[in-house]
Amino acid sequence: MEAIIQAVNLCKTFRLGLLDVEVLKNIDLAIYKGEFVSIMGPSGSGKSTLLYLLGGLDKPTSGSIRINGKELAEMEDQEQSIMRRRDVGFVFQFYNLIPNLSVEENTMLPILLDGKKMKDYGERLDEILEIVGLSDRRHHTPRELSGGQQQRVAIARALINDPDIILADEPIGNLDSKTGTEVMELLQRINREKGKNIVQVTHSREAADYGQRIVYVKDGKVWEK
């Protein structure tokens, strides 16, 4: 099978005061086209760090990451930024929306940053907001939305540029169980119906089960059951 994300010998070390803490040690990981992968592990195990490295938000101390066959380390800031706009969508635990922008504007951010005109993407926006169930909230700002709705906006933003990969860091970590279930079902639907690759970091076994594969991170290493 073709790997859409390929990490080889990945290491990440943080400096804490005078100490170097090795969070990830020589990790090899491949995410294949169409997969929904859950990454689990105890607090501080490095699972979020792994996710951010895979998405190019952070740089590894050593090792290689390839997305769609392109080596991240070889990319300039401009190229990486374009990759984040077009190939990867991020969903965070605390939604991370821009508070003074409306649902529409938050969703369209990657389009705007790509230098495209918002009006050319009207239909796409309607479609995405329909998928996440926020068509009637498009002019509201994040402050006027519930946690679940905000997370849906984050998902809509991740989808707007039709990327191949969606990386989600504890997407339901800040939501109640009912809303959490709704969000997970939405992600699962996106994976199944749209064929998007989803990699999520989660503490919850239930949430992890929405994925087809579970990767465990512990003591800087990964393994799968």
């Binding site: 938000l57 930024s81 929306l97 940053l113 790509d114």
Partner: peptide, 16 residues
Amino acid sequence: KRSLAVFRSVGMSKKQ
């Protein structure tokens, strides 16, 4: 800081 980081995470380049 957080908003700026969000911009970066969704693809805003340093120049932008």
